[in-house]
Write a protein that binds this DNA or RNA. Sequence first.
DNA 1: TTTACATTTGACAATTATTGTCAAGTTAAT
DNA 2: ATTAACTTGACAATAATTGTCAAATGTAAA
Lengths: 100, 100
Amino acid sequence: MKKTGEIIREKREKKRLLLRHVSAQLDIDTAILSKIERGERKATREQITKLAEILELDKESLLIQYLSEKILYEIQDEDLGIQALKVAEKTIKYRVTKNK
Amino acid sequence: MKKTGEIIREKREKKRLLLRHVSAQLDIDTAILSKIERGERKATREQITKLAEILELDKESLLIQYLSEKILYEIQDEDLGIQALKVAEKTIKYRVTKNK
DNA sequence: TTTACATTTGACAATTATTGTCAAGTTAAT
DNA sequence: ATTAACTTGACAATAATTGTCAAATGTAAA
């Protein structure tokens, strides 16, 4: 699956927008956007939703992708990662059914 | 499923250890351990492994529980959470099979 | 009940991580 | 060679995390 940064860069280029154009709208330096696109920095949640608007990307898909990367970053290369994910999933599902 | 803090508190009490005993070994104030046990603060990864040793808890299980809570904290109450978890899982599995 | 000790609470200090700017360095297309 | 876009890295600002401390509260035995 494509990384968040790649998705952003590809769409930005397809729209023929420069880093300068988009970063101005995000109110950050081009340097950061450059780093975000290359995966050297994480965006903030707010930046992701703004980017989806600016670049006309599906907001939900982009957020899901973004969140999944945050999760993976959190568990790093723990080999207990998969098990932790499964436990987290169960907990969420439990919460949902119990409506709490 | 039981929360990390609960597991810790229960085992500490079963072993008749005081906050003061355990927190000294962790080299932190009792206040923090108290908060960790009641879920008011997160422990660090290092504290979790030390706690497993001190309290003779299964290190892997405790870490899995701990990591899953970090994950859940990360996605907060995003309703895209479950989907993000699934994407993360796929990515990890992919990485594992591709050995990279 | 008071004394003694364990735990909790909350204000705030220290430390660490994240997010940002800036200026100089590359790259690529004229 | 010039110019504009992008990248890099040092470092500043900000925000989040992790900690201390002291006072408050709970608990139980004398």
